[in-house]
Amino acid sequence: MKRVSDRIVTGAAWLSGGGLMLAAAVVIGFLILRGYKNLDLALLFGDTPWQAAIMGERPVFGGIWPAFMGTFYLVFLSSAMAIPIGIASGIYLAEYASRRLRSLLGFFVDLLAGTPSIVMGLFGFTAILFLRKTLLPEAQTCLFLAAACIALLVLPYVIRITETSIEAIPEPLRLLGYSVGFTRWRNLRSVLLPLASRGMLSGAILAVGRASEDTAVILLTGVVAHAGIPGSMFDKFEALPFRIYYLAAEYRNLGELDQGFATSLVLLCISGTLFLIAVCLQKSAEMRWKRR
């Protein structure tokens, strides 16, 4: 009896693990199959020579370079807002907040996590309308607004993951630092954060991934089809997911649709690269924390 259930569980585990890999392989394979033909410099830069495009000497028409840079700025800005604040709040909730405050704040964090992204976009849009009528008549939807709304969207994930990865450290280890006389801050810095860093990394990765793919928020807060590379944080911008959406919805021939697939591949590469950077950062930090 025991053996049978054991086998069923093992089999199910293998199946779901394999299924996951298969699903990922099918999606990526499909993208590659449809997109690789279009994956060239012309996709990125259109007819503009690439050196001139990268240096910003000549504007790019017909290529996805402006969208590429738009997404990059967007992800960078929103991560720069959401990750530090999220990690700090997670630490506060796990280590400093009283039990009552923790459950109260936790409720709001969950509420924020449950907010659909289109609602977040509407919020940004309304905020701009309000600003126009009151303090800043010339305010408009822009890169900064979109980044702020996306930051708000991913913030709860970062908070929750930071909090749970600190709380997951077993009690004896959490108290160990105090027994050698560490202050709360020292214990946090030298013991808890290094031990929780892996969990915090997955929070950051989730935030980056979410920020790079979201379309609903930016749709209402400043993305447009042809804006070029934004000159400042207060300009309109292009973004890869919006470009993909646009190509998929309004393609005039199959070539354009395939361009959409190639663009998806590029988006995948961006988030993949960002993941890799995050993993490397965390690994080297962990080495430093643990060895010396």
Binding site: L173, G181, T183, R291
Partner: peptide
């Protein structure tokens, strides 16, 4: 101060409690 107290009064736990870092650290 608490931190000085715990440094002056050293403790070894019932179950060995090392930091999950290098021996040196």
């Amino acid at each position: 101060a608490l931190s000085e107290l715990r440094q002056r009064v050293g403790m070894v736990f019932q179950t060995p409690a090392v930091f999950p870092f290098s021996i040196q650290k």
